[in-house]
Amino acid sequence: MAETRPEPTGTAGPNRLMRVLDRVVGGVEWLHRNSRRDAGPARAVDHDLPLVISEIRAEADGVRSLRLSRPGGGPLPAWQPGAHLDVLLPSGRTRQYSLCGPPGERRHYRIAVRRLAEGAGGSREIHDELCEGDRIVARGPRNAFPFVRGRSYLFVAGGIGITPILPMVRAARTRGADWRLVYTGRSRASMPFLGEIGDLPAERVWIRPDTEFGVPAAGGELLAHAPPGAAVYACGPVPMITSLRLDLPGSTARGLHWERFSAPPIIDGRAFSVELARSGRTVEVPADRTALDAIGEVMPEVAYSCRQGFCGTCHVPLLSGQVRRRGRARGDDVALCVDRGRGPIAVDL
């Protein structure tokens, strides 16, 4: 799972466009939401898992992978494709990264991180400050992007989005399912794990760098590779996911499951305040930002994962006030990544 910042909201024009797109693709989105509901929120993992960085490798321009092992050796907790680790960095930041090694591998974990020069600092810390032999702490694995058993699949990855997709491809191949992989990116130099993907059957893989085609791929172009009745699993930037959602009804695929790099755009947002009851702070949330972003500036350790209201990582108890719900928080909880206060609210932080 890539470390990201929310996309800035645009002017009234783009906001109107996003509203139209949401109406157009509304009939498609239920497929993904039902898959999330069937799986349930990702299981909370509260215990710390000490790890040592046993190897760091350059995988592409600006991308490095980290191999993580137990300091004294021994097996790690089991995981399934789509799972990620909550990585607690020495600075106190918590970031989420997909496990991208072979499914079932328990001697070590592998994550990959793209350095974001303008990001919130987590990726720069990993790239610039961590070295082989350093110790870190993680929690997990947890799975907010579950891979459901089926007969046929289309996997679509955009850049660093290959990280959760690669274990799914390996699992589908092991199960004997009918599958295809479409891998897009700005250029081949920016696309990690091309060497490993080169070991897959060439007739099932399409590498599609933008520099070799002039423009990013359209959804219909990507979906044209789907086997009949395929479930589509996609991870990548918002325009790629939106294009897939728009063009899915006209394809032979039967459903779309996705993980995107950034939070959905805030449309018609209104400013509100959040009282952090335990810490005694009050945070002002601007109209174009989420509560998670604003709280993260004063509490960088606040946990989050999908940023889309599905996984449950950032859910906290709502103590007072009313919220406009956009996520899957239940009862008296609030999803900090997408829910918004209808006025001042207080939460248990």
Score class of each variant (00 low, 15 high):
Phe213Trp: 14
Gly198Leu: 00
Ala217Val: 11
Val205Gln: 04
Arg204Cys: 02
Val232Trp: 04
Arg208Ala: 15
Val232Tyr: 04
Val205Tyr: 02
Gly236Glu: 07
Gly198Gln: 00
Pro216Asp: 08
Gly220Tyr: 00
Gly214Glu: 14
Gly198Asp: 00
Pro209Arg: 05
Ala231His: 13
Pro237Ser: 14
Ala224Glu: 13
Val232Pro: 06
Val232Ser: 08
Ala217Phe: 04
Ala230Ser: 11
Gly219Trp: 05
His225Tyr: 10
Ala218Leu: 10
Trp206Asn: 01
Glu221Cys: 06
Pro228His: 05
Gly214Asp: 14
Pro227Tyr: 03
Gly236Gln: 06
Gly219His: 09
Ala218Tyr: 00
Ala226Gly: 10
Pro209Cys: 06
Ala224Ser: 15
Tyr233Cys: 11
Pro209Tyr: 05
Glu203Ser: 05
Leu222Glu: 09
Gly229Asp: 06
Ala234Pro: 14
Ala234Val: 13
Gly229Glu: 02
Gly220Asn: 01
Ala230Arg: 04
Val215Tyr: 09
Val215Ser: 14
Val205Glu: 01
Arg204Val: 00
Glu221Arg: 09
Arg208Pro: 03
Glu203Gly: 00
Ala224Gly: 12
Pro237His: 11
Ala202Gln: 03
Ala230Met: 07
Leu200Val: 06
Ala234Lys: 12
Leu222Trp: 10
Gly236Lys: 07
Pro228Trp: 02
Gly219Leu: 04
Val215Glu: 13
Ile207Ala: 09
Gly219Asp: 07
Ala217Gly: 05
Ala218Met: 07
Ala226Ser: 12
Gly220Pro: 01
Pro237Tyr: 04
Leu222Asn: 09
Asp199Lys: 06
Trp206Arg: 15
Ala226Val: 09
Glu203Lys: 00
Gly220Met: 00
Val238Asn: 10
Tyr233Ser: 13
Ala218Arg: 12
Glu212Asn: 06
Gly220Glu: 10
Leu223Arg: 10
Pro201Glu: 02
Val205Pro: 04
Ala224Thr: 03
Val205Phe: 01
Ala224Arg: 14
Pro237Lys: 05
Pro237Thr: 05
Ala218Pro: 01
Cys235Ser: 12
Pro237Trp: 02
Glu221Gly: 04
Ala226Gln: 08
Pro227Asp: 04
Ile197Met: 00
Ala226Met: 10
Val238Trp: 08
Ala217Met: 09
Pro227Leu: 04
Val232Gly: 04
Phe213Ser: 13
Pro239Cys: 03
Leu223Lys: 11
Leu222Lys: 09
Thr211Asp: 15
Ala230His: 07
Glu203Cys: 00
Ala218Lys: 07
Leu200Trp: 12
Cys235Met: 10
Gly214Ala: 14
Met240Ser: 11
Asp210Glu: 15
Glu212Leu: 13
Thr211Ile: 13
Gly214Trp: 14
Ala217Gln: 08
Pro209Gln: 08
Arg204Gln: 11
Leu222Ile: 14
His225Gln: 12
Leu222Met: 15
Phe213Arg: 14
Leu200His: 01
